[in-house]
Design a protein around this nucleic acid. Structure first.
Lengths: 343, 343
DNA sequence: GAGTCTGACTGAAGCGCTTCAGAACCTCCA
DNA sequence: TGGAGGTTCTGAAGCGCTTCAGTCAGACTC
């Protein structure tokens, strides 16, 4: 609390015998002073332990904080149990970091989405939201603060940039693939805020609702188990529920690869074989899908690109750009060995 | 860039007809004014679209930013491919968030550790470093800025708080367990900055060096394959290298569970059985270890607790606390089904 | 009714920096 | 030789907020 007062621009200025403005220029606008003076300033600054302009004061003066906020629907551990989230975040972080911006993390609580007070105090001048429930209070706070917003995989909001993929189309591809292989009895595995067979409500996440639409477009009515989150363990127990239905589904449509990995395990738990007894298809095409046992048939979406695009959009909003049309990234079906013709 | 100027404390003050100090108090010290006036202020503030005190200006005035920085040794995607990292980060984030602090992420680049310029501009008043290479330049910058620092799993630095586990002891337990089961031919799988059999150098991470020491204490010399990172795919191919040695190891010591998961797969790839042909032990005890096939024998360390402790320490340094003695968390061996007596 | 308290509000001094309109001096060319 | 044009540096006005020492009424005490 009372360590010795740190040196400031003024300290340096008077140590060197120039004005504060000049020292500031030494750091920010080298062209505004002679090289020799600049060098002297930097040298003296270093010698008295001045580590450069204070980021906060600089932010206040320039009116931007060089940080982008990242709001997440889940606690970090839940979010990162799904590699898809990590990959998106990595794409975002590297774009943003490449432009000398920091990432301020606002993880979600149990009710989905960061706490409003967290969002209200976050130092960021643009925020990107990922997989928040549609009605998250955090979104309201962001708008109240007047911060530019980019959403990933969420319903369009007025005046907001957006990146998305064709979830409906992707889901349709997955379902059509199974349909063409002769499957007629399906189980659907999704995730949301709580576990159980899906009754009236259709889940909090737009992505999931969309995938559901796509699946149903093709397969019609089918039992849907919603997991409380997207990870293997939940996928495994959810799949177990679906597989214990009578008649047993011959194919499982999973709303994420993590869920599908769990489903593969559940099928094996029952002593059944993939794909001869049960076909499984995922969604995302995370790197591991290729190395699963058996390699997973899934819908590929460009995860890293999604993060990068979101980052680029955020950066653009930052300099006053317009949100523009939603960016829609392509999906495609990757056929591997977890699906086969029904015999 | 030129959206209409946002309302400030002054705007509100004059709209209400009170002084700026009073409006500030309405937000920060409700006891300093009458409830009725406070209510009126908040109401008018809302009506003119004032979303509360600007976080940056507030930070400047109070001289702290309510943010803790988190420096990481790897890019996000690499870091999060290992659930251990996510769990630690989650523990940290929830502690910190519970005290109304944000987390500022500073992911590493290819050379390990965030870029110095990123660190120099980050708005945080304390930073915690996790799994950085020992000589990361980022650490230097933090100290130059005079920010309090807490390190997780890293060599002790002067005037720095630290949390760690007994890596040497844990590794010893794992090795001793296998030794007692009769194993004499070992393969060791670790991770670091690049892939290959370990020759002279002993890796960039202290954690890994310690685990290696523990393994070797018990098993003596043994081939060591260093993966370029800690994930399944790398573990799988690394284990493949070890298993193709002659004579083939009967037991694999893996420096992380992720690596061990890969190793399990590699063993199966070769048509061998676990644990009858090859025993495998991991390190970390991530949640999935229990559900692996077979369930993984591993060294448990309290990952979430590690993050929480680091958070608590950071918060303490923030209010001027002394670093104190390093916090050392206990490890223990969890015996499951991936290890068995050599027959 | 004088004196003391207390609660409610305000004035003004910063926090550490950026930035912009000059000032001061020098060079160069007509 | 006079002014146009450069270069280098400075003064001062903010950025939006917190905080502390007061001021000012009104309530209370004796």
């Amino acid at each position: 609390m009372d360590r010795p007062r740190k040196p400031t621009l003024d300290t340096v200025a008077s140590a060197v015998g120039v004005s504060r403005a000049t020292v500031s220029n030494a750091y920010n606008r080298p062209d505004q002073l002679s090289a020799s003076l600049r060098e002297r300033i930097l040298e003296i600054a270093a010698s008295i332990g001045y580590a450069g302009p204070d980021p906060i004061a600089r932010s206040l003066a320039t009116r931007h904080s060089a940080a982008v906020g990242f709001m997440l629907g889940q606690p970090l551990s839940a979010a990162f149990s799904d590699p898809a989230v990590s990959i998106v975040l990595d794409g975002l972080a590297s774009t943003v970091d490449g432009h000398d911006h920091c990432l301020v993390l606002m993880p979600g609580g149990v009710d989905g989405g960061p706490r409003p007070s967290t969002v209200a105090r976050a130092q960021a001048d643009v925020v990107v939201a990922y997989s928040l429930p549609d009605d998250a209070p955090a979104l309201t706070v962001v708008r109240a603060r007047g911060l530019p917003l980019v959403v990933i995989d969420q319903p369009v909001l007025p005046d907001t940039a957006r990146v998305e993929v064709d979830d409906v189309g992707g889901a349709r591809m997955a379902a059509a693939h199974l349909w063409e292989l002769g499957h007629r009895r399906f189980g659907i595995l999704t995730f949301g805020l709580r576990a159980g067979f899906l009754g009236g409500r259709d889940g909090a996440y737009r992505v999931i609702r969309d995938r559901l639409v796509g699946y149903r477009d093709v397969v019609g009515a089918a039992p849907v188990w919603e997991c409380a989150g997207s990870n293997r363990a939940m996928g495994r127990s959810g799949a177990r529920e679906l597989l214990s239905l009578t008649p047993r589904p011959t194919a499982l449509l999973c709303a994420s690869d993590e869920l599908a990995f769990g489903a593969l395990q559940a099928v094996r738990d029952l002593g059944l074989r993939i794909p001869s007894d049960v076909s499984v298809v995922g969604f995302d095409d995370v790197p591991e899908a290729e190395h699963a046992e058996p390699p997973l048939t899934t819908v590929r979406q460009p995860l890293s690109e999604k993060g990068r695009r979101a980052g680029a959009l955020a950066l653009r909003l930052l300099v006053g750009g317009r949100p523009g049309e939603p960016t829609r990234l392509p999906v495609s079906l990757v056929e591997r060995d977890s699906t086969a013709r029904l015999t």
